[in-house]
């Protein structure tokens, strides 16, 4: 019975393992692939799921020059998941020649908008502020802001962040309520965000003559709660970093298809790169759950026998 006793002691030791070893294992599982991808620059191919394809098609199918309202409803705490989505969607809009209007319902969302626009439009001198894009910034009030924007955008925002009155911004000419935009995008980490946009701004238009098209980008925690809205109340959802990676892949494929010699800048492959640490992190999680259960039931059997 020596081997059996040996097993038992391994179980017992594993059961009492210092949890900091598990922390270290998680750190290595995430950090090592980042270093590896950082050195080699390799990424995995992505197969888009229908909800992501739906989001891509919603942007792709609009005629060039369409007006898209992008609400970046998150703060730096969730930027790790959502920034790649924001970048990919804004980039897609810019590639298609859409006019982009940005805003945020989160007080700490302002610099996120600035950073995203700088990243995407920094080398696009043809995208002139006021004509091709405009930043409305932050407004306090959550659903109250949505209610005002449903009636008149200018009720919520008298000016943009650069203090230009809305009526003097060329790209907003003809926009009264939110339904006058051709597409609404919310990239959100919780309240107030995509769910509230669906409830307050999108759903009321569905019984009217001009339904508002809506695309959401969402954190992993929130995504399952948005799923029932697709495809009726939302044209598409980007769920967690995987959704971002699929969207990035679709945009980059479209770029490559249009111009086979095009080189996609590394900054537009962030989510795809992140799928490597995800892969190892997920595998570690599965392994830990399985191992934990083996130890648990192993010990329990031993106790039962003893």
């Amino acid at each position: 019975m020596a081997t059996h006793a040996g097993h038992a002691s391994i179980f017992a030791r594993l059961d009492r393992i210092d949890r900091r070893w598990i922390f270290l294992a998680m750190f290595v599982a995430v950090a090592a692939p980042i270093l590896w991808v950082g050195v080699t620059g390799k990424t995995f191919p992505e197969a888009p799921t229908p909800a992501v394809q739906g989001a891509f098609d919603a942007v792709e199918s609009l005629p060039s020059g369409a007006r898209v309202l992008v609400s970046m409803d998150f703060d730096p705490a969730s930027a790790g998941e959502l920034q790649p989505m924001a970048t990919a969607i804004v980039r897609h809009c810019a590639l298609r020649g859409h006019r982009i209007c940005t805003m945020t319902l989160w007080p700490a969302g302002g610099p996120i908008i600035d950073g995203t626009m700088q990243d995407v439009l920094g080398d696009r001198p043809d995208y002139r502020y006021g004509e091709h894009w405009v930043n409305l910034g932050y407004r306090a009030g959550f659903e109250g802001v949505m209610k005002q924007m449903n009636s008149r955008v200018s009720l919520a925002y008298a000016t943009d962040v650069r203090q230009t009155p809305l009526e003097r911004i060329p790209m907003l000419e003809g926009i009264t309520g939110i339904a006058d935009f051709d597409l609404l995008v919310s990239i959100s980490a919780g309240y107030a965000g995509a769910k509230e946009w669906v409830q307050y701004s999108v759903s009321p238009t569905l019984t009217g003559s001009k339904p508002l098209r809506f695309v959401a980008g969402s954190t992993g925690v929130q995504t399952p709660q948005l799923i029932p809205y697709y495809p009726n109340q939302m044209a598409g959802i980007l769920g967690a970093i995987k959704g971002a990676a699929e969207y990035e892949y679709l945009v980059n494929e479209a770029v490559r298809k249009a111009d086979p010699s095009a080189i996609v800048p590394a900054k537009f492959q962030e989510a795809q790169r992140r799928m490597a640490p995800q892969l190892f992190g997920h595998v570690l999680m599965v392994a830990l759950i399985v191992l934990g259960n083996v130890v648990f039931f192993g010990l329990r059997n031993r106790e039962a026998r003893a």
């Binding site: 393992i17 949890r19 703060d75 705490a77 930027a79 999680m285 934990g292 648990f296």
Partner: peptide, 29 residues
């Protein structure tokens, strides 16, 4: 915002990855 608020809030949230790993081994039965 960039150098104090972002890194601290971001890391506080990132800590959850460690806790979920530890719970995976020790709690999810």
């Amino acid at each position: 915002y960039e150098y104090l608020m972002s890194p601290i809030t971001g890391t506080l949230f990132a800590m959850l990855a460690f806790y979920v790993a530890s719970a995976a081994f020790r709690a999810f039965r």
